[in-house]
Design a protein around this nucleic acid. Structure first.
Length: 534
DNA sequence: AGCCTTTGACCAGCG
DNA sequence: TCGCTGGTCAAAGGC
């Protein structure tokens, strides 16, 4: 990709490694120089991404079929649009990598990115990103890829494809121009727009449509793709080639249907196009975040003093300023796919209807000690097939291991679905989500489903998240039939009458795990059996 | 030479 | 209809 970087320094500030300084204004250069100096002065991470083109679609179906013993549908994509939206300059690639969306979520991991120099256990991360583990790939991989290829200082990072910039436009509300790119592959209609913030950070990359071709081999890719790279480019061309080479004629699956497909959505598509509105949303995000910690469930519209107070609190909590606050990543999934199952453990602490969306939003907090990451899971107001998940903050811990040994299903024990489920395999175990509790009836059932451990659930598995509610198709949990109906959390208190506070930490019940596990298996089997063949 | 970026102009949608 | 805005085109130039 042109001018994109495979490597970038991660510091909470984007660093422009491009060589186009000479073409930039003095102000820009000054700022960028400052940033670069800042980088030098900090203990930053330098992340290399070893790309794998798990995005190569055809192999997907085949792999799934091979593992599952059944075929998965290939769904033609007429069009799709998604974007990565980083509202905070602090949303560094590392942040994204470590976010539940991009690190642990198997749905997003089809395209492997290796953190070759990440100080933490990148081996473990590799496992999460191993495309061979993920049975399905689709737009999710794009999300991952694009996410990890956020460019530095204005150039979108190398995502494995070749792009030609065909336009640049100064759009209203942006200090920096928006850049337009087209995929250079013949007959490929994929385009992307790259926007930058006033600070010059890339804030948004919007992709339109999906590639109808595999990634070009490394040696065919435009040299420009690395032109903006600082150093340490590490692209696993072999693997990429290997995965991509057999999928020339594959139709890319739709994010609406395909497991693993996911859209990182821009706020415009969510009705957040207005900057002020987004600001409110962002404010509210913090509010929700803080509400959890402060035991206060406020309204969306905070008074100015309250806002300042909350913002100050947020700053304290996240170590960020308003311009550099906790990273926020908005992800859009389809109803069949939810990134609640992202490997982390979440506790639902509230639910409320927020401005701009009649669908309730549910709030979750990472249950890990000391971790302040929150997320909230809502159905798009304009697209009921989509679920929007916003992550706020950065996990301070690794993805938790399996909740208990009982949650591990032997790879040889699942009959028809053996190995066919896109199961994530840690330590050679196939992980199945385990509910925390079923002791609280419907509420708990819902919560438990939200709290699954590193799930690898295909869209046809049967349930979906629905704006703080859960749709379950024929799933039975411990005698609790939840058939094609939605159920909500109970309210235990909310000053505004909007936020529903949930009970305390759920409990783990072994029996429930077993039963639910069985139910899921049954459910999965049933649903997948009805899948059309390719 | 080929491919890219840059940039002003043009076009279309919308209020 | 007009102006605004976003998206695209295409010539020119750079690498």
């Amino acid at each position: 990709m042109t001018g994109f970087s495979d490597t970038f320094a991660v510091m909470g500030e984007w660093v422009d490694c491009s060589t186009n300084h000479k073409k930039r204004s003095k102000a820009e250069l000054d700022r960028e120089t400052s940033l670069e100096e800042d980088v030098k002065n900090k203990d930053f991470l330098q992340t290399n991404f070893q790309e794998r083109s798990s995005y190569s679609g055809g192999g997907l179906s085949e792999r799934v079929a091979a593992r599952a013993g059944f075929k998965v549908p290939s769904i033609n994509t007429e069009s799709n649009l998604w974007s990565l939206n980083i509202s905070s300059p602090g949303a560094t690639p590392a942040t994204l990598l470590e976010s539940p969306v991009f690190l642990s979520n198997p749905l997003l991991s089809p395209t492997t990115g290796k953190l070759s120099s990440l100080p933490s256990d990148h081996k473990a991360k590799d496992e999460f990103f191993d495309p061979t583990i993920i049975g399905v790939e689709s737009d999710a991989s794009q999300v991952y890829e694009q996410t990890h290829n956020i460019g530095l200082g204005g150039a979108p990072a190398d995502d494995g494809y070749n792009w030609r910039k065909y336009g640049q436009k100064l759009v209203k509300g942006s200090e920096y121009p928006r850049s337009y790119y087209k995929c250079t592959h013949p007959n490929c209609e994929v385009k992307k727009k790259v926007e930058r913030s006033r600070e010059g950070h890339i804030t948004e990359i919007i992709y339109a449509k999906t590639h109808n071709h595999p990634k070009p081999p490394l040696n065919r890719r435009s040299g420009i793709g690395s032109s903006g790279t600082c150093n340490d480019i590490q692209i696993d061309g072999t693997e990429q080639q290997g995965l991509a080479g057999t999928n020339e004629n594959i139709e890319w699956t739709s994010p609406v249907r395909n497991y693993g497909s996911m859209q990182v959505q821009n706020r415009t598509q969510f009705g957040y196009g207005d900057a002020a509105f987004f600001k409110d949303e962002d404010e509210e995000d913090r509010t929700s975040h803080m509400s959890d910690s402060m035991g206060y469930y406020g309204e969306a519209d905070e008074s100015e003093p309250k806002r300042r107070k909350l913002e100050a609190y947020a700053t304290e909590m996240s170590g960020s300023t308003r311009a550099n606050r906790a990273p926020k990543v908005v992800v859009k999934t389809t109803s069949d796919i939810d990134i609640l199952e992202d490997g982390y453990r979440w506790r639902k602490y509230g639910q409320k209807v927020v401005k701009g969306n009649p669908n309730p939003r549910s709030y979750y907090k990472c249950t890990a000690t000391g971790c302040i990451v929150t997320k909230h899971v809502e159905r798009a107001s304009d697209d009921l097939t989509s679920v929007l998940t916003t992550y706020i903050g950065k996990h301070t811990h690794e993805v938790p291991s399996a909740r208990s040994s009982s949650s591990h299903m032997s790879s040889g024990s699942s009959g028809t679905i053996q190995g066919g489920l896109p199961t994530q395999t840690h330590n050679n175990h196939v992980h199945y989500p385990v509910p925390h509790s079923i002791s609280e009836g419907l509420v708990t059932a819902s919560s438990s489903l939200f709290d699954f451990q590193t799930p690898m659930r295909p869209p046809w598995a049967g349930f979906s998240v629905y704006g703080g509610e859960t749709e379950l198709l024929g799933l039975s949990i411990s005698g609790l039939a939840i058939g094609q109906e939605r159920f909500s959390m109970p309210a235990t208190g909310d000053p505004a009458g909007l936020m529903l506070q949930l009970p305390a930490e759920p409990k783990l019940e072994q029996v429930a795990q077993q039963e639910l596990r069985f139910s899921r298996r049954s459910l999965i089997y049933r649903d997948t059996s009805s899948l059309p063949e390719i």
